[in-house]
Nucleic acid binder design. Structure first.
Lengths: 346, 346
DNA sequence: CCCGGACCTGGAAGCGGTTGCGCTCTCAAG
DNA sequence: CTTGAGAGCGCAACCGCTTCCAGGTCCGGG
């Protein structure tokens, strides 16, 4: 028994297919009594309209393309979770495009499978080349970028520069003067976090603003993740000049750093303070001070912005389509930061 | 300028729409020279066939529904990553359904938005009621279940009982006799890991098999995640009888347990051994012994099984459609386990 | 009593492809 | 030279729904 079509429902309800469509779609006027009859019939047959056909006829797909470079990393999974929750509740399907490598991205943006498949696009902290951006623009679909502003398009994110600045200032206020920086490096998939440059800049600006010197000997980098943080910290420890505190580009690096320090027998924050950025779920576990961002909320906001564009401005006019939403970050003080050794409050 | 249709391509190439379709679809015979002309024309117009229309006409959507209860948890994100990689390379789109709460699931399975949207379905460790299962069956689509076998359908997973058993045996061989168990509890979303009962059973069977007593005073549970592990361990420490080793239902719990132990000033593995299950990425960082499973590989395998059904047996015959793939687990020995205090090798 | 308008509903034309069927043309065998 | 097999390609019929347009009813007002 094949799936029932709209005609089956129409026949059962004793109306035309047009009326069934109207009753279910809820758009134009149908006599309440008629509508109920149709609804009952549909229910009875457990009829579900073919998204294919309805999309073809109406020009709307009721699906959103969500493009992410990674799905296994904390930041992205939080984002996806926020996005999918909002979209599901609005009746949109989420088509997930997982583009880890540059190769994947290139082939994706040149083939553009998004073309007629979705009503809108959401990219999450995607490192896009000009070509990619162009291809995206050519789609001329409602679009929101999360994690990286895009000229003329709506976006949501945090102030990366300020976030790292807050971390630095916290250390400065504690009295630290030799502040190190742990950065991530692009990994095999040739992808560094898109926010990396800004975070580094945030670090340097804040250090300079505090009247301190930006000392390259106090900076180190490691591959993505905890492992990278561990090795970066190790190289800092092996360096010519020791910091009294370090800020990590993101929490995973800080976690690794903590590990290295513990193994080296150094006390945190006694011998060295550590502060991260993100407020990763593990940060609380290891008592890491950090600058938190609400990633789930960014996903939610991004999705909402997109929905707004979808049933409002038809992509491209002023209004919400260009809004840049900057979400707040918060300094989360935990046990990994303290005044430098030998320093005392006046 | 609206998106080009197949007729635009046809006109440009000087052929009929049918030929364009055949040239791009690659199915039936087209003269190589003609096909090339069509390909060039399509390329020139950057033509992408509407999935809607082609799906409607052909009955295939080139999309797979992936249903997960969570996306932010290690296990699931790894799975999704494996699944999406395979499907993307096979030209399938992934429609992600993120159903965290029982309410979400109920409304999902009763509305069944999957109906005509996808060619196949993949569920990942979903706790399904009989109703859900029935609704899924009624779809009559190629289907693979990851993380929980389903009668008559293909599935992939690990032997949960054996995995925990391996953890227990490891401790037994080390000489432990008072072995505790840390379990997770369902969280707000009313969801406990679907494998929880089997893991517990694995624990109890292995303990019994070792000739030891299953002592309820050596078992504790906490809410999902590290936090839960920490509190579960705490309650064990506060209990009437102390274990010399504990196995945690999954690594996140073990991580929390390690934290509690460290804070309590207990040495691991000196005072107490800890072993987890999963080989979570943080396990390596904190030097946790564990029983590892390759979750990414499970995703890959699941996706492959589904593809096999898609272009082979039309859902429901014998063959691969019912295969139960059990992937291997491996005992990963790290620094969190050792013989019990006061014990020495003969 | 007649007419205009509001309100429902049905008919039918697509939406943009796919594909069965059949026509045309080429070429080798009879 | 005739005939038949194939290969290539076009015609047209859908796929299942949405939506424009027009027709039919029912009312209230003139």
């Amino acid at each position: 028994m094949p799936r029932p079509s709209i005609y089956d429902v129409a026949a059962l309800a004793g109306v035309s297919a047009a009326t069934v469509s109207r009753s279910l779609g809820g758009k134009s006027k149908v006599a309440p009594e008629t509508r109920q009859r149709v609804l009952d019939a549909a229910q009875l047959l457990s009829y579900v309209a073919s998204p294919q056909a309805s999309g073809l006829a109406s020009g709307r797909t009721r699906a959103i393309g969500v493009v992410v470079p990674f799905v296994t990393r904390w930041f992205f999974s939080e984002l996806i979770s926020g996005v999918t929750d909002v979209l599901r509740d609005s009746g949109y399907d989420v088509v997930l495009y997982h583009l880890g490598s540059a190769r994947d991205r290139d082939s994706f943006f040149s083939r553009m499978p998004l073309a007629r498949r979705v009503d809108g696009v959401l990219t999450c902290s995607m490192p896009l080349t000009d070509e990619h951006t162009l291809a995206l623009r050519a789609l001329d679909l409602p679009y929101v970028s999360i994690g990286s502003p895009m000229p003329g398009r709506a976006s949501v994110g945090i102030d990366e520069v300020a976030a790292v600045g807050a971390a630095v200032n916290h250390l400065v206020h504690l009295g630290h003067t030799r502040i190190g920086y742990l950065a991530g490096e692009p990994d095999d998939a040739d992808f560094g976090f898109i926010s990396a440059p800004q975070r580094r800049r945030g670090f340097e600006l804040a250090v300079a603003a505090a009247g301190l010197e930006v000392d390259p000997r106090l900076q180190a980098s490691g591959r993505y993740g905890t492992r990278g943080g561990a090795s970066a910290m190790a190289s800092l420890l092996a360096g010519p000049v020791l910091p009294t505190a370090v800020v990590a580009e993101y929490d995973e690096l800080a976690l690794g750093a903590l590990l290295t320090l513990r193994r080296a027998g150094l006390d945190v924050p006694g011998d060295l303070s550590v502060v991260g950025v993100d407020d990763h779920e593990m940060a609380e576990v290891v008592d890491l001070s950090t600058v938190g961002q609400d990633v789930h909320e960014q996903g939610v906001t991004g999705a909402r912005l997109l929905l707004q564009q979808l049933d409002g401005a038809p992509a491209g006019d002023g209004g919400a389509a260009e809004a840049v939403h900057v979400l707040a970050t918060r300094l989360v003080l935990r046990g990994s930061t303290a005044p430098p050794a030998g320093w005392r409050t006046r």
